[in-house]
Design a protein around this nucleic acid. Structure first.
Lengths: 236, 236
DNA sequence: ACAATACTATTTATAATACAAATAAAAACA
DNA sequence: TGTTTTTATTTGTATTATAAATAGTATTGT
């Protein structure tokens, strides 16, 4: 178990969480009992149980007398929990997972742009604009373009003025990171991509909600189409 | 603390969770310490700490030495956690909250219908159809129409074949329950509403993805417009 | 007077032990 | 064979003790 600034319980949560997401305990009954975990990691039952409770709260496992600890089915997992999302990222997501992410981004982001155009505060607008500026600098090599890209998408969610959309920031961030990993570009964001982002921002700034939504939709559809295509070819 | 079939830790999680969502500890430092909670509910530190860890895992609180336990800002809460959603429902959500729900449903449900039209399995289609049948029976007074309505919307999410959309079943269910509470209808779902649902199903069944999405969108927009209107009038 | 440092008190973090409760599996029984 | 009882295993709860972290206070040196 890696040493760290975090306490024992949190370290164990992280360790077991990554293992579960990596499918290490998929053999159904392969999840160790409380006592096993204590032995294996050399820590007390107190810390172990608290870690187990945290994973239970995130929907990853169940823990009952005599039955022991079991990894639950995927449908019980809190997939929008930021820890769970970070563990997905650790666990080598495949193309299918990328498609799942894109399919939800396609729903979320255009509507978030719509809401941002309606409700964004001046401060929220400034945040979007500053992320955009960082992207431009990055095309000149002065900044990390992908980081700025992520910040742009997150700032629109914040501008939506809706706590549910705001909560989805980590989801979108993870989706973008998975996407970046697959497109495998060491290269920065292209000029075309940057211009598409500028268009979205201009529409938001000028309160053209439907136009902002449409502009966001187009990019999403294009990206998803490419991945759908790849997956269809793989099937053959 | 209500007695129940659940164990002490789970009872305490529920108790504290509902209190937090009800804004009982909003006074910043009003959250009691471990020792206080033990006294107040007459239970051991073990059970108390495990409950605190579960609430921490859901993003509701933080707990650090010397600082004690604090309710975190809304943006840290895992709003898509099914427990948190159930506690929102307990906590008398207002019109603004209903709008937040509707704004996200507007994004999710049309796209879910789109995906269902593309990917639904025969079994998934049967589930949608059977929910629809229950709605029709309900117009004749033989079933709970709202329950059937909720089941209809959830079955489309399941049919999407995407774990993220499937995970949002509890969110949509909660959104519908909040909506039902506000429209305050003792009456069943109307014939018009039922027909709108039939249309969506037919499009899904016949793989007309865009038509299914559009049909789902129309109802959502109408509902949101009504609530937006109410809120605007309240501001004046 | 001020800044840096050391101290102290409070609260959570971890460990260890003991026993209670739940329950799956095995044994006894009708 | 089907039902009931027993048993063994695993988690649930309680208690006590000590360690670690840290906000607030006091001290010290300049």
């Amino acid at each position: 178990m890696q040493s760290s600034h975090r306490n024992l319980t949190q370290q164990l949560v992280h360790e077991l969480g990554t293992n579960i997401l990596a499918g290490k305990y998929s053999a159904d009954d392969a999840m160790p009992s409380e006592a096993d975990i204590c032995d294996q990691y050399g820590i007390s039952r107190t810390a172990t149980r608290e870690a187990i409770k945290m994973l239970t709260a995130k929907g990853l496992i169940s823990s009952r007398p005599r039955q022991g600890i079991k990894v639950l089915a995927l449908k019980h997992w809190n997939l929008f929990d930021s820890d769970v999302l970070s563990w997905i990222l650790t666990g080598k997501p495949d193309l299918k997972m990328l498609r799942y992410f894109l399919q939800l981004r396609l729903a979320i982001e255009p509507e978030a742009a719509y809401l941002a155009a309606q409700y964004a505060s001046p401060e929220a607008l400034k945040e979007i604009e500053s992320a955009l500026a960082r992207m431009q600098q990055a095309t000149n090599g002065y900044d990390d373009s992908h980081e700025a890209d992520i910040e742009f998408h997150k700032s629109i969610l914040r501008a939506s003025n809706n706590p549910f959309y705001q909560q989805l920031q980590v989801f979108i961030e993870t989706a973008l990171k998975v996407n970046i990993r697959f497109t495998n570009r060491m290269k920065a964001v292209t000029e075309d991509e940057y211009q598409a982002h500028v268009t979205i921002f201009e529409h938001i700034k000028n309160h053209r909600a439907q136009a902002a939504s449409d502009a966001a939709l187009i990019t999403q559809k294009a990206t998803l189409a490419i991945v759908d295509d790849k997956l269809n070819k793989l099937k053959k």
